[in-house]
Design a protein around this nucleic acid. Structure first.
Length: 1055
RNA sequence: GGGCCUGUAGCUCAGUCGGUUAGAGCACUGUGCUGAUAACGCAGGGGUCACUGGUUCGAGUCCAGUCAGGCCCA
């Protein structure tokens, strides 16, 4: 017996332990870096890492995106691509500031200013890496290979400098301007709130509901009727919006004093507004007819600097509430501001940042904005402009920190004029491959179609400063595009300057126009600009790395969750479009969200977040990753639970592991090793498995090429199931038999090929078990093989090995075997009891040869002496016909029902026989004759009552259940073998140990044992079998009634 | 209010070009098998394919609408 190169692997395994071993191996041999080095010179595959913020612990959703990033990168490396996998960290922004504010107990910006911006930013800088070790540990443990040592960091000076360069390019194209943005704003805290903060503070509240008359300029008897729940905004009114397509009416209404008035409202709202009151509709017209109609201003505290007080048209006007005419105060509403931009309306701000009314609003100056509501209502009442007032209950946002009602408030800020490039944004999107595809023209495409200018400015502290300096004297503005330029304009070397606030604010420049002093504008830029700039800034382009940059743009592949559509995906796309008129990424996988077991979004506040470590420590990374890839399509939301990951372990990983364990155990026993010189003589089963294997490689490869993780994994699961529960089950004996022959070699070769190929197919998805199998099966026998499976080449499939018919045939054989087992079960006869015969019926002529060709295999599987087709030679069977709708329906369309009737009217016996013989039958419908082909009808066979049958559709297994004395004896012999095998196991013997076998049993059993003496000794590896009481030193089992079995391990020289 | 996605067994999901008995795994019950298996085989219970209408010889599948959930935007 030659020495086996394989390490025998026990069937029991602790997967997390196994994984940790390979983590060590990768680290020790620097495999990750070798994936880059060894592929240098190969085609470039460009990946961008969307930077996370490390100021919180990573969760399962991070494992999700990192797993999906990793799987395609590992695949590409195996395909020979060179990939720079550079990590990155997003480090700026409000969430970081809020964390620090919380720690310091701050509730307002004023406190930060008092504390000192320099010190505050220092704390921010520290806080962003507070959990970096958790991130690094988890990243390593989930086998996401990314270079964190050289990660780009958005707060680095070089990174900021690149961003300045980008902004300067935009500036010079005239794409950056200062405008107004309406933001949710807390007047008490003195700060705008981010969306997620607003979402925290919605409460049900009661507001005034007032209807106000706005008399028309050229027809003072007629008034527009508007509705509002914020009377305090009325002094800032500059326009009224109507929907262009809604129908409006002019109604005549009786006044208490006997006179009448005319009011204009949307037709669908007449009833809601006037209730039971009788009004007369005197005119009807579409909303667009109102465009430009001028009305008398409500208040003139502030004189507008532009034309105002006329009707504008807007799609956002609804006919759900109010009057269909909406009062516009651009300073206090997003929609209103949009209209102001569109119609160039003036922006009147009547509220100060602290929430009190400005002095110009004389009667109520200094009053808190909400407190003015009743006074304004009273004033309107006095002036006869109030139509009605009441109360209205709705949800309104309050500050989550202090409970103050929020103010939607126009603040001056900076914009990028993305709308100027909208057509390019849309056109370039066509070049991007989205997974799933609907995002392209759905969520992302719609977002681009409705593009609005990018609000860039942020009035905060910790972020990339906007590099615009403004002259104190003449107001001239200049964008600085580099540190060198800054130094030059400042007249001193600033190369060591921290480009953050407050230091950068202290740099004074000299105005090139008037020689005055220039100071930086106070704003920072949106953090989405930071992350979107990574395509340029991670390389400090254009100041450095120009060659690398050229090769690394655009990206071939990026992947994040769907919440990045308007976030990172957009910022990458927008920056690339404006800067290069090119796409930033070619392929993007857009992941769904992770929900908890009840379908709820995982969030800290709900307390339903699953810690990835809880899963990894129990089941391991491979199980978690496999679950994430196979559970559902990547774009769908997915429910997550630890139990489902456990299922993966049992169903897939352990099944694979056991095949692997089986192989190594027997290969080690036999001293088998792969041998390229002896060509294996494959049997039918081997050919089938190889056919399945090679079509698997083909399918999986295609899926990877299409960024289809589900398609790259689920088929492997099916293959492993078949490998374990059909190929191996049917092949076991070929490995057991002693000695070595061609058939055994073929079996080993086939199984070896399957396992080594699987290790490569699994390397991208389950990198640990893939490495385990590869190291033991490939590296151990082939010193020239790549050091790690992750450095190996992707397997090629052999088209010639794929035999679709063979695959289909075997599928049928498996089904027939299943029916055979069902029949045995029905008869209550265990598989160990041999039976004389089983007969099968199949519904279609072309399937009949499968039964004969695989008769031996079926006989063995079902433990019967003979397998045959049912229905031959006048056997008492009856047929019935089942017309197949798919074939016949497609052929005969609406004639199908009649054809079907005609077929059912045929004599089933005669027609069935002909069809099963492969001949057509003729039916007549409406005087026309039609030839029905054998593959258009299924023939259902029923067996005569004497047989035990199991059937499914047209397939049927009929069992002859008669047990002759000979069969009985053989059954007993097989039982006996099993008893001995159990005893061997109990005695703790090795698989290959030879034994002395002793037994005592009643007559009937003893007779059977003696009749099958050679068979029993061969099966149980007995060198001697004695019908006598076992000696004292033997292991004795009395597990079976009336039977004593004794075994004693034999000494080596007896073998 | 708008856009996008999802809705199939108790749970997680398949379901091809529309084809007449809607499947798998898990869980449950019974039973069998086992010297690779923490497994596996066989059988059983469990379905208004969210709902309504339409197209069609035929709809889980296509179309329209409704409802519910999710995400994003307002």
């Amino acid at each position: 017996m030659s020495q086996s190169p394989f390490k025998p692997v026990p069937p029991k395994v602790t997967l997390p332990k196994m994984e940790e071993r390979h983590l060590e191996f990768w680290k020790k041999h620097d495999i990750f870096h070798k994936t880059e080095e060894t592929r240098r010179g190969g085609p470039e595959f460009v990946f961008y890492e969307g930077p996370p913020t490390a100021n919180g612990r990573p969760g399962v959703h991070h494992v999700l995106s990192r797993s999906f990033k990793d799987i395609f990168l590992r695949y590409r490396v195996m395909r020979g691509y060179h990939i720079i996998r550079r990590g990155g960290w997003d480090t700026h922004g409000l969430p970081v500031e809020i964390e620090v504010e919380k720690k310091l107990g701050f509730t307002s910006k004023r406190q930060i200013e008092e504390f000192g911006v320099a010190e505050f930013n220092k704390l921010c800088r520290q806080s962003v890496f507070e959990y970096i070790q958790d991130w690094e540990k988890l990243t390593e443990r989930i086998a996401f290979w990314v270079d964190l040592e050289n990660a780009y960091v958005t707060y680095h000076n070089e990174y900021i400098e690149s961003e300045w360069w980008i902004l300067k390019q935009f500036w010079e194209q005239g794409l950056i301007y200062r405008g107004h943005k309406v933001v949710p704003y807390c007047p008490r805290c003195g700060t705008p709130l981010a969306d997620h903060e607003v979402a925290l503070g919605y409460k049900e509240t009661e507001d005034p509901s007032v209807y106000v008359r706005l008399p028309l300029m050229d027809d003072p008897d007629t008034a527009l009727l508007v509705w509002t729940t914020t009377p305090w905004t009325l002094p800032a009114n500059v326009a009224v919006a109507a929907h262009p397509k809604v129908t409006y009416v002019k109604v005549k209404r009786q006044l208490p004093n006997g006179e009448h008035e005319y009011l204009i409202v949307a037709k669908p709202l007449v009833e809601k507004v006037f209730g039971d009151e009788k009004v007369e509709i005197v005119a009807e017209f579409p909303g667009k007819a109102l465009k430009g109609k001028r009305y008398q201003p409500l208040y003139t505290f502030v004189v507008p600097d532009k034309p105002a007080y006329f009707v504008v048209l807007a799609d956002f006007v609804t006919t759900e509430d109010g009057t269909g005419l909406v009062h516009m105060a651009p300073a206090f509403g997003e929609d209103d501001m949009e209209m102001a931009r569109k119609y160039d309306l003036p922006i009147i701000s009547t509220v100060k940042p602290d929430g009190t009314l400005v002095s110009a609003v004389r009667p109520w100056a200094g009053m808190f904005f909400k407190d003015a509501d009743p006074y304004i209502i009273e004033d309107l009442q006095k002036r006869g402009l109030l139509f009605r007032s009441g109360k209205y209950t709705h949800t309104y946002p309050f500050c989550w920190r202090c409970g103050t009602p929020l103010l939607y408030y126009a603040r001056p800020t900076w914009y990028i004029r993305t709308t100027a490039k909208k057509d390019r944004l849309v056109a370039l999107n066509e070049k991007i491959n989205w997974v799933p595809p609907h995002i392209k023209h759905g969520r992302f495409g719609n977002w681009l179609e409705n593009n609005i200018d990018w609000a860039l400015g942020r009035e905060r502290y910790w972020g990339t400063p906007l590099p615009v300096w403004q002259c104190d004297e003449c107001g001239y503005q200049h964008a600085v595009g580099s540190v060198a330029e800054l130094s030059e304009m400042a007249g001193r070397d600033l190369s060591g300057l921290d480009l953050h606030r407050p230091y950068v604010d202290e740099v004074e420049l000299t105005c090139p126009k008037c020689g005055g002093k220039m100071h930086r504008v106070p704003e920072l830029i949106d953090v989405w600009f930071d992350s979107g700039a990574m395509q340029v800034a991670q390389w400090h382009y254009p100041f450095e790395n120009q060659e690398i940059f050229k090769k690394q743009h655009p990206a071939d592949y990026i992947c994040e969750a769907v919440d990045q559509t308007r976030g990172w995906f957009y910022s990458l796309h927008a920056i690339s479009t404006l800067l290069f008129d090119d796409i930033a990424f070619k392929n993007v996988v857009c992941l769904g969200l992770i929900l908890d077991e009840n379908g709820q979004k995982m969030s800290k506040s709900r307390g339903n977040v699953v810690d990835p470590w809880d899963v990894i420590n129990v089941h391991g990374t491979d199980a978690l990753r496999w679950y994430l890839y196979t559970a559902s399509p990547p774009g769908d939301n997915r429910r997550f639970s630890v139990n489902l990951v456990g299922e993966v372990v049992r169903n897939f990983l352990l099944t694979l592991w056991n095949v692997y364990s089986f192989f190594t155990t027997y290969a080690a026993l036999d001293g088998w090793q792969p041998n390229s010189e002896t060509k294996p003589e494959y049997n039918e089963l081997d050919r089938w498995l190889r056919s399945e294997l090679h079509s698997l490689v083909k399918r999986v490869t295609e899926a990877y090429e299409n960024y289809d993780a589900l398609g790259a994994t689920r088929p492997i699961e099916e293959f492993v199931e078949r490998l374990s529960n059909w190929y191996l089950r049917r092949s076991r004996r070929r490995f057991w038999k002693s000695g070595s022959d061609a058939d055994k070699h073929a079996a080993y070769s086939t199984l070896y090929e399957a396992l080594t190929t699987l290790s490569k197919l699994l390397a991208p998805s389950t990198p640990f078990i893939a490495e385990e199998i590869y190291q033991n099966l490939v590296r151990a026998t082939d010193p020239s093989a790549a050091e790690s499976v992750h450095l190996a080449d992707w397997p090629e499939y052999d088209e010639a090995a794929i035999d679709e018919k063979l695959n289909r045939d075997m599928e049928l054989v498996i089904k027939l075997a299943s029916l055979g087992h069902a029949a045995r079960n029905k008869a209550g006869i265990k598989v160990r009891q041999p039976l004389q015969e089983i007969a099968f019926a199949v519904g279609r002529a072309f399937e009949q040869d499968v039964v004969t060709r695989y008769a031996d295999l079926l006989a063995d599987e079902l433990n019967v002496k003979r397998v045959r087709l049912l229905g031959g030679r006048g056997e008492a069977v009856s047929y019935s016909l089942k017309p197949l709708p798919k074939q016949l329906g497609q052929k005969y369309k609406s004639l199908f029902p009649k054809i079907r009737q005609a077929i059912l009217a045929l004599d089933p016996q005669e027609a069935g026989e002909r069809l099963l013989a492969g001949e057509p039958v003729t039916v007549t419908v409406d005087g026309e004759e039609y030839a029905i082909q054998p593959d258009e009808v299924e023939v259902i066979v029923s067996a005569h009552p004497g047989l035990t049958v199991a059937s499914e559709g047209a397939y049927l297994a009929a069992l002859n259940t008669e047990i002759t004395p000979e069969l009985k004896q053989e059954g007993i012999a097989r039982d006996f073998v099993r008893w001995v095998q159990n005893a061997r196991k109990e005695a703790g013997l090795e698989l290959s140990d030879r034994i002395h076998l002793y037994y005592q049993a009643p007559d009937e059993i003893a007779k059977a044992v003696e009749a099958y003496r050679n068979y029993i000794m061969g099966e149980t590896l007995a060198v001697e079998m004695t019908a006598a009481a076992p000696p004292d030193d033997a292991f004795v089992s009395t597990a079976v009634k009336n039977v004593v079995i004794g075994i004693k391990k034999s000494t080596p020289d007896e073998q």
